[in-house]
Simulated assay, not measured.
Amino acid sequence: MPTIVKHLLIFGRVQGVYYRASMTEQAQALGVTGWVRNRLDGSVEALAEGTPQAVGQLVEWARQGPRQARVDRVDVSDGTDPRTAFSGFVQRPTA
Rank of each mutant, 00 (worst) to 15 (best):
G31Y: 09
R70M: 07
T51M: 00
K6V: 02
T33Y: 07
R20K: 09
P66N: 10
V59M: 14
L47E: 15
L8Q: 07
R13N: 03
Q15R: 03
G50S: 11
D75H: 13
R67C: 06
L58I: 06
V44D: 04
E49S: 11
S43K: 07
L30K: 09
M23I: 07
P93G: 03
T94G: 00
P82I: 09
F11D: 10
A54Q: 13
E25I: 09
V74G: 08
V90L: 03
A85T: 08
T3P: 00
P82D: 03
A85D: 15
Q68G: 03
P2R: 05
T80C: 04
G16W: 05
F86P: 00
D78A: 13
I10D: 00
G79N: 01
T24Q: 15
G16I: 08
A48N: 07
P66S: 10
R92V: 07
R39A: 07
P93F: 01
F89T: 01
A85F: 06
Q28H: 07
V90P: 00
N38H: 00
G12K: 01
E49W: 04
L30W: 08
T84W: 10
A27W: 08
Q68L: 14
Y19S: 07
V17N: 08
W61F: 13
V59R: 14
R73I: 03
Y18W: 11
A48G: 11
Q57C: 06
V14A: 02
I4W: 02
E25Y: 10
L8P: 11
A95M: 06
A95G: 15
R92T: 09
V71K: 10
A54D: 11
A54H: 02
M1P: 14
T51D: 00
V17L: 06
V59I: 15
T94I: 09
G31C: 14
Y19P: 07
A69Y: 05
A85N: 13
Q68W: 04
R63V: 06
W35L: 01
G88M: 12
A95N: 13
G31N: 10
T84R: 14
G56L: 06
R37L: 12
A29D: 12
G31W: 12
R13F: 00
A46S: 14
G16L: 09
L40K: 13
A85Y: 08
G79E: 01
G79Q: 01
E49V: 03
V71T: 13
V90Q: 11
V14L: 04
V55A: 03
E25A: 15
